[in-house]
Simulated scan of single mutants.
Amino acid sequence: MEKIVSINIKSDFGFLKKPDTNDPIYLTFNMLHKPSLLGILGAIIGEKGFQKHGEMPEYYKKLKGLKVSIAPLEENGKTYHENGNFSKTIIKYNNTTGLASEEEGGNLMITEQALVAPAFKCWIMLDIENETEAKLYNFLKENKAEYLPYLGKNEFSLWWDNFEEYEYEIFKPEGIFRIDSLFIKEETIKEGKYDPIFQLDMSSFAGKEYLYFERLPVSYETTKLFQYEYEDFTFTNWQLKQNYKLPSKHSLYKLSSNEIIQMF
């Protein structure tokens, strides 16, 4: 039996390192992405992380099939983001362990970009008849964790609250609707115009609507390099028109809370 549940994830700071940035500054993704969320869920139920070069970690092997959905958090009238973006700061520090640099003295000077007070709503589809997923369901519901979860770095511990579960159905657009989560944008914008994959309802514009775009990891490649595979995501408070073309691989779901989300 499958259930969709949600939790709100919060942290004082976060660092979701972009693998293509290094010198002179380490940059972070703005939005929580699926591989990072799976790592958080794996820590909660005590699954092992990366242990050996060239081997996929246990948590990923067991959880990679999960369908998830993610959105920047808004709750009780409070918005933790600005038009989809979180505040960021620059942190500078020295790594003096002697193991991080071959320079004289073994001192590595690091400059990192960090998220400030990031918060996300995460929906997860769980098969309660699967032992691992049933354990995750119970741990999320009871606020238990085997390992302390963190947001990108072990000094950036996180917590979650507001566990909820939902009845759901596949959503087929009829009229104007809004997607309450990040969703995958499969077409590009050409000459400043949106392709028919989705059409914004311009009549909903009230001066405070926004479109947020970010290319985010959705999985690891199967090669031994374990590089990310990416998709282009959108988050918006604009309403969409009925002729939004459903992605071929990722369904929209309507929840008993009346939220419409895309799970991937």
Rank of each mutant, 00 (worst) to 15 (best):
I70R: 00
E142S: 14
K224E: 14
M31C: 10
L73C: 05
E47R: 00
N243H: 14
F226L: 11
Y230N: 11
K254W: 09
I90C: 00
K190F: 10
Y59P: 06
Q242M: 04
T234M: 13
S181R: 06
I45H: 15
P19W: 13
S157V: 09
E214S: 03
A71E: 13
D232K: 00
E102F: 08
N76D: 06
S69K: 11
L16C: 02
T188Q: 13
E82Q: 12
F205Y: 04
R178S: 13
P72C: 02
I7M: 11
M1F: 12
H81S: 07
F163T: 09
A43T: 02
E164R: 13
D127E: 04
K67T: 02
E165W: 04
I189Q: 15
F235N: 09
I45G: 10
F226N: 03
A100Y: 04
E103I: 01
Y137I: 05
E2C: 04
F226V: 02
L240N: 07
P247D: 14
E131I: 00
M1I: 12
T236W: 10
G39D: 01
G192D: 15
G98P: 00
H53K: 12
F171S: 00
G84T: 01
E82N: 13
K3R: 03
N138L: 08
Y210H: 00
Y93H: 02
L255N: 00
Y230Q: 05
V116P: 03
F29C: 04
Y194P: 06
G46C: 08
Y26M: 10
K52F: 01
Y194M: 13
Y60E: 15
Y244E: 11
D12Y: 15
L182K: 09
W238I: 13
K172E: 14
A43K: 03
Y230R: 04
N85E: 13
A71R: 08
A206E: 15
N143I: 02
C122H: 05
T79L: 07
N130Y: 02
N83Y: 03
K208Y: 14
K121Y: 08
K153L: 09
F13Q: 14
D232E: 11
D23K: 15
I70C: 01
T234P: 10
K62W: 06
L246S: 04
E169L: 01
D180R: 11
P196K: 11
L38A: 03
P173F: 02
I25W: 02
E259P: 01
L200Q: 09
L126W: 07
P72M: 08
S248H: 11
G207Q: 06
G77F: 02
V5S: 00
E187T: 00
P24N: 12
E75K: 13
E47H: 00
T89A: 15
N243A: 10
S204N: 15
V116I: 01
Q262H: 11
K92P: 07
D180P: 09
Y80P: 04
Y168S: 03
P35T: 08
G42H: 09
I9E: 07
V5N: 08
E47C: 02
Q239N: 13
A206H: 01
P35L: 08
L41H: 08
R215I: 01
L63E: 12
K64I: 07
S36K: 08
F50G: 05
Q199S: 07
R215Q: 05
I261H: 01
M56K: 13
N95L: 05
D20T: 03
H250K: 11
Y59I: 11
A114N: 06
E131G: 07
E75A: 15
A119I: 01
G207H: 14
E58M: 04
V218N: 13
